[in-house]
Structure formats: structure tokens, C-alpha cells
Design a protein around this nucleic acid. Structure first.
Length: 112
DNA sequence: ACTTTGACTATAA
DNA sequence: GTTATAGCCAAAG
């Protein structure tokens, strides 16, 4: 079996394991994959997340400031915020409130 | 094989 | 406090 998953697939795996009501950052995911600094690649990987089956909870991934930077990539610009609020995460002005409280670090929770 | 990009992050002005 | 720029790296064109 080939475990040669591309960087994108590795990102998908991490995002898929994000627990309900939790969020993480692009840098944290990249860092968890040993590619700290490739935070942009994480976001770009999400660019193809909508073609996955099933799609990954990209709405749980925000930038380092807790800002919904990629909300425009969803079906609707408010879809991301609606999803986060639906999970109990307060979002105000495209920014996650208590971001540090909902932050989920894959490098710590994940046993890689 | 080269250029451009991109849902980031950090620092400088 | 806000805006600009640089550094970063892998995939798509």
C-alpha cells in the first residue's frame, strides 16, 4: 500500500479529524505535517476540498487571528460563519470570538 | 522546465 | 492603528 499522500491529502486528513465545535489554524496544520511555514499550502489544499467526497469541514479552519479569511470560498460568503455559529462558536465581524478557547492544535491532539 | 499563485504569517514603515 | 512588503513552499498553469 502506498502511503505517499500528497501534501494536500495530509491536510485533508488533519482537517477531517477536527472535533465538532473546534477550530484550528493553517499554520498549526502545516506545522503538524512537519511543513511549518507552508501555511499557504494548507489554505490552497482547501481550495480543492469541495471536490472531495465527502467534503472536509473547512469552516473549522481559520487564520492565525481567528478571522474567516476563506469564507468567500464557500458557497455563500456567510456560509462559513453560519456553520461555525451552528457548532457553538461565536463569530463577530468575520472574527472568531474566544478563538483561543476553541483552538484545537492537531500537533498536540493528534498522535503523529 | 519556468512562472504565477495563493483561504498565511511576521515584520517594517 | 493601518497598510506594505517580504518570506515561505508546494501545486497548477
Amino acid at each position: 500500500m502506498s502511503n505517499e499522500q500528497s501534501f494536500f491529502e495530509q491536510v485533508y486528513e488533519v482537517v477531517k479529524v477536527i472535533p465538532y465545535g473546534r477550530i484550528t489554524t493553517y499554520g498549526a496544520i502545516a506545522r503538524c505535517l512537519g511543513a511549518s511555514g507552508s501555511s499557504r499550502m494548507v489554505g490552497w489544499a482547501m481550495n480543492g476540498s469541495h471536490v472531495l467526497s465527502p467534503p472536509i469541514p473547512a469552516h473549522r479552519v481559520v487564520n492565525r487571528k481567528g478571522v474567516l479569511t476563506g469564507k468567500h470560498h464557500f458557497g455563500s460568503p456567510d456560509a462559513m460563519q453560519q456553520l461555525l455559529e451552528s457548532e457553538g462558536i461565536a463569530v463577530k465581524d468575520d472574527c472568531v470570538q474566544d478563538f483561543d478557547r476553541f483552538f484545537w492544535d492537531p500537533a498536540k491532539e493528534l498522535h503523529l
